[in-house]
């Protein structure tokens, strides 16, 4: 018996989604094979990492990641420019945290202004995220979509409880959209169907099946992503072909392993390296299982994953 390269060819293909403007526009997705298996398919676009910033100081981020932005995080415009100009961010994800009713409850108009200011200051593509409050997000993201009109942003997240208004806003202002459900392939599929039934083009959609941090449910996210990919490729399930988003930083930078000081847990080793590794390993597992677009926080973790992607492609 002699060796034959065991290739799989699939009927389905991940949709390619672009965002941003002019020469800074980026495409993600478009592959017709499992992650990084270039011996059996085409992977026209490598995974992209967006730097996460927010519209208020990151008081609730642990020191390891808060301190690296301490000189710029007082103002989202400065922060965004810092990521673009000094850290070479290819894309930026702005989370409108301060609009959350339990935080500063800032208005949709405030959010719209922040977005205009940030967009005026940068030329890399922008992802606009709500505060993950179902009702408030629908107001905030509608205003945000309008403020960002003409910039081909990604907005989100549209969830089961609020997708209608957010989809309408993305449609009206020609943005790309994140559809998020909670760790269940059937829920992800169903939401994509509901959204496309509203006349939203599936080739403008990204699926966020919900991320989880290393050690805190990573295995669920990993397997849901692999299953979504296989459904889209092997079964040619059209509703499972949007590129996948991995919102990594927000899930990682709150678990005990990234905050507990070495003095308390000497067996866990150096805190800074531990936090960076936690984010890098979580993100690497996500791209290994199918993620096309990552949202991350720590520059060293991002640099590590960039190098990993470089090696993988």
């Amino acid at each position: 018996m002699s060796y034959v390269v065991p290739k799989e060819s699939f009927n389905g293909k991940v949709l390619s989604v672009d965002f941003g403007k002019d020469d800074k526009a980026i495409s993600v997705g478009g592959e017709n094979c499992l992650p990084f298996l270039s011996f059996e398919g085409d992977l026209p676009n490598r995974p992209v990492i967006a730097y996460e910033i927010q519209d208020c100081p990151p008081d609730d981020w642990p020191d390891t990641v808060k301190d690296v932005y301490k000189d710029v995080s007082g103002d989202p415009v400065t922060w965004a420019k810092h990521c673009q100009d000094n850290l070479n961010a290819k894309a930026i994800a702005l989370r409108l945290v301060s609009t959350h009713p339990d935080r500063d409850n800032r208005s949709a108009e405030d959010a719209a202004k922040t977005i205009k200011d940030v967009l005026a200051a940068i030329n890399v593509p922008l992802i606009i995220l709500g505060s993950n409050h179902i009702e408030k997000d629908s107001a905030v993201l509608v205003a945000a979509a309008e403020a960002a009109s003409g910039n081909n942003c990604i907005i989100g997240k549209a969830q089961e409880g609020n997708y209608k208004t957010i989809v309408a806003a993305a449609l009206a202002h020609n943005h790309k959209l994140i559809a998020m459900s909670e760790l269940d392939i059937n829920l992800a599929k169903q939401l994509n169907i509901l959204i496309t039934q509203m006349g939203f083009d599936k080739s403008k959609l990204l699926t966020d099946p919900m991320c989880s941090a290393l050690g805190y449910g990573l295995e669920y996210t990993y397997s849901v992503m692999e299953r979504i990919r296989l459904a889209g490729l092997a079964q040619n399930d059209q509703t499972m072909q949007p590129p996948i988003l991995g919102d990594v930083g927000i899930y990682v930078w709150k678990v005990k392993e990234v905050v507990a000081p070495e003095a308390d847990l000497p067996e866990w080793g150096a805190l800074e390296e531990r936090g960076i590794a936690w984010e890098a390993v979580t993100a690497t597992s996500m791209i290994t299982s199918g993620t096309n677009l990552l949202i991350m926080r720590h520059p060293k973790a991002i640099e590590t994953v960039e190098k990993t992607i470089e090696e993988l492609t």
Binding site: L214, W268, G269, L271, R274, A277, S285
Partner: peptide
């Protein structure tokens, strides 16, 4: 390094749990 072991032990544990 200890921090590295913790991260790798955890990812191995996650990948090898019974789904």
């Amino acid at each position: 390094e200890k921090w590295k072991n913790l991260a790798l032990f955890t990812v191995r544990q996650n990948i090898y749990t019974d789904p």
